[in-house]
Design a protein around this nucleic acid. Sequence first.
DNA 1: GAGGTGACTGCGA
DNA 2: CTCGCAGCCACCT
Length: 109
Amino acid sequence: MKKLSFYEKVYAVVQLIPQGRATSYGAIASFLGAKKSARMVGWAMNNSHFLYPPIAAHRVVNRNGMLSGKAHFGDGNTMQKLLEAEGIEIKHDQIQQWAEIFWDPEKVL
DNA sequence: GAGGTGACTGCGA
DNA sequence: CTCGCAGCCACCT
């Protein structure tokens, strides 16, 4: 029985996020069974840039819907541009209609 | 082996 | 309302 690392599971969830939707670190962490381990999700995202294919880390934001990790995408507007390309409206580095854009992994189950 | 860090979150003052 | 602290687990030095 192969036990996947915490961040390996994060990648699986992020890849399941449908286009035009987004989720939060806490939602993923909670889905994995460690609600308070949202930091691990962020750590996984940091490593995501070394992964191939690159996972949609831009679809993962903090629980406020704010692009907390936009600075890690190289430029300060890359993450926002990617989200806007998927039809997500962003204002002041924050996702508009976050309640509708929010995608809960548990909902898929 | 031990200590410090981190793309977060929740609660208390 | 705003600010600060503790918890969580994996990775890096």
